[in-house]
């Protein structure tokens, strides 16, 4: 593949796999061998417990990723593997942000939270932990606002993705 045509967009890939040991290692290996970093990864059992759903966000060239998807699809324990970056899909993510907040700052933080539809999940005289959910871009915007205060720690779940309408992911 020519280096010039690389387009380093972030891709959201969903993989439907048999719920067996070693599957994640095999998939991760294919990404690693091609030099692709996995930005986020969500794995959980699907509605049918024999299978798991993985949602992988990764950055890299579209051509390279196409090859990765073909190779992942080939694995014995993989049912299917799809890139949802271009199609119309529901993408959601959740983040927990812990802030050190003084009494004077609290109202302003709550205003920001209200604007972004965040939930306060923990509140003490000196700290508060807020939960924000939504598309990743919304999380980025909300967190940019919250960073004005002292951000003690941040945990993001990574994206999950689902096809819209009656299409299957």
């Amino acid at each position: 593949m020519s280096e010039t045509s690389t387009n380093m967009a972030i891709h959201t890939i969903s993989v439907y796999v048999a719920n067996k040991p070693g599957v994640l290692a095999r998939i991760a290996q294919i990404f690693a061998r091609r030099g692709f970093n996995i930005d986020s990864l969500v794995v959980s059992p699907s509605s049918d417990g024999r299978y798991s759903r993985m949602t992988i966000a990764s950055q890299g060239s579209a051509e390279g990723l196409e090859q990765i998807i073909l190779q992942v699809s080939k694995l014995v324990d993989v049912m299917h593997c799809m890139d949802h970056s271009t199609g119309d899909a529901i993408v959601r993510e959740m983040a927990l942000a812990k802030l050190r907040v003084t009494f004077e700052q609290r109202t302003e933080v709550l205003q920001i939270c209200e604007h972004f539809g965040c939930k306060t999940v923990d509140l003490t005289p000196t700290a508060m932990t807020v939960m924000v959910t939504g598309p990743s871009e919304k999380l980025d915007a909300c967190l940019a606002m919250l960073r004005q205060f002292e951000l003690v720690e941040l945990v993001r779940t990574g994206k999950v993705v689902m096809a819209r309408g009656d299409e299957v992911t």
């Binding site: 040991p21 070693g22 290692a25 095999r26 290996q29 061998r33 694995l75 014995v76």
Partner: peptide, 14 residues
Amino acid sequence: VFGLTMPVVKHSYL
């Protein structure tokens, strides 16, 4: 050996 051979097998079992 399951881990060591993973990149060079079509499939493997433990």
